[in-house]
Every structure is written in C-alpha cells, then in structure tokens.
C-alpha cells in the first residue's frame, strides 16, 4: 500500500467570496507502516490538506493516489462524535464488524473501559479525543489520519495519549498521517517529517527519522527537534526579512 500525493494548488473561497491560496505545492509519498507527520504553523493549510487526502474535498489542482479500497480511519481536530449515541455505539457505528475482544482490548489501551456507556456530552475533551481515536482504530484502517489529536490537552495526558497512539500504530501495518504544530509530538511519533511553510503551504523539507520510535533516546529527539525548529524558523525569518 502506498499513498502518492502531488497537490499543486488549492484555492479557498470564503463566505464573502474572497479567494485565498491555501496550498501552493505539496508532493510526497507514504508507504504502509510509515508515520508521516505534517509539521507547520497554525493556519498553514494542514487541515485543508487532510480533507483532500481523506477524499472530503475534490476541488484542488494536482492528484492524490490512494490505494483502491483503502479503509480510512480519521481523527478530526474536534472529536466529532455523535452526541446521541453512547461511546461504544459511536465506535461500533463505523466498525459494525469489529469483534468484541478486539474492541475491549482497544478500550483497555485507551483507558475507556469505564466509559463505554457514557454519552459524549458527559466526557471531558481528553476522553472524547480518546473515543475519536478508538473509533479510528476500530475500523482497522489501511490509512490512518490524525489531525492534531493531542491539541489543547495538558502535557501529562498528551504524553500518555502519545504513548497509546504509538502502541496502536506499531501494532499494525498502516499508512499513518499525523498533523501537528507540536514539534515534540512530531519527532516522537513520526518516521518522516514533512515541514510546511506558512500559508499558502509549500513543502519546505522532508526529514526521515531512521531510528524506530521505541529506540529513540532523548538526546536524539532533542537534536532532531532543534534541527526542525531551525529549518522552520529559518524560513520564517527569511520571509520576514
């Protein structure tokens, strides 16, 4: 399985009829078993890209080759759960064939077992995010899309959830695309980092991290992080000046 993307342009029209260039040019490929990470400043068009890759937006220039019949699991920036269905029903809705044992294991990993029968309105944002993750994993996706799954969570919870995502991603061979503005998350989870410019988004650089996720030492992570920071900020100062 392989995802090939070559988006040459995307224009966004707002309600007032004004046009904005959101994406200027992004091309990359992603293989099964790899975690690709989009790193870029807020509002640079990452979410737009996600919508194109998920097949929700067809109005762009360029092409996206998804493997035929690939199952998509997606975690949107907001949890997007059905408020009128319980946690378990929300997950089962998209994965009607999921067997009970696997589902229980998934709820166990994400620490949701106690909340199966709760309605989303009764959950904190952190819990709702985990339900959204459970839903995306329950479909046993070939292509997993995570849009800022850790945003606005406190550090301890974000770290735990990052661990849980790593566990789930390593457990199966899936193309994963993670969107984040947090370089720490990117370096800890990603195999390949795609650094994006501010809007309209261009691919600034592609960084591969050869060391497997589990074996990355803190020193290595810090080094990659500062490299990423330098590249992103370098571009920023270049633009300002």
């Amino acid at each position: 399985m392989r995802l090939e993307v070559d988006i040459t342009g995307k224009i966004f029209r707002n309600a007032a009829g004004e046009q904005h260039d959101v994406i200027a040019g992004v091309a990359f490929a992603l293989d099964a078993g790899e975690v690709g990470v989009f790193v870029g400043p807020s509002g640079c068009g990452k979410s737009t890209m996600i919508r194109i890759l998920a097949g929700l937006d067809h109005d762009f220039r360029g092409r996206v080759l998804r493997p035929a019949g690939a199952r998509i699991g997606i975690v949107f920036q907001e949890p997007r759960l059905l408020p009128w269905r319980s946690v378990e029903e929300n997950v089962r809705l998209v994965a009607p064939l999921a067997d009970d044992k696997k589902l229980s294991a998934l709820f166990e990993i994400l620490e949701l077992s106690a909340h199966r029968n709760h309605f989303p309105g009764e959950l904190s944002l952190g819990l709702a995010r985990r339900v959204a993750l459970a839903r995306a994993f329950a479909v046993e996706p070939d292509f997993l899309i995570l849009d800022e799954p850790l945003a606005s969570l406190d550090d301890a919870l974000a770290a735990r959830l990052r661990e849980q995502i790593a566990t789930l991603v390593d457990g199966r061979s899936v193309m994963t695309l993670l969107v984040t503005h947090d370089v720490e998350d990117a370096v800890r989870l990603g195999d390949r980092l795609f650094l994006l410019s501010p809007r309209p988004a261009r691919l600034l650089a592609e960084l591969a991290i050869p060391t497997p996720r589990r074996l990355r030492r803190d020193a290595e992570i810090a080094a990659i992080k500062s490299d990423v920071m330098r590249r992103i900020n370098g571009d920023l100062t270049g633009r300002d000046g």
Partner: peptide
C-alpha cells in the same frame, strides 16, 4: 456538516449514515 464529513470519511453506507447521523 462536520458529522456528515465524518460519515463520508468512514465510508458509512448511505442508509446507516441517514439513520444514525442525520435522523437524530
């Protein structure tokens, strides 16, 4: 529209999406 997108992304069959996402 956000829930519609969710249903589309997860490739929910039309009737299932109507019954569980739209009808409520």
């Amino acid at each position: 529209a956000a829930l519609d997108e969710m249903a589309t992304a997860f490739a929910l069959p039309r009737w299932r999406a109507f019954r569980h996402v739209v009808l409520p």
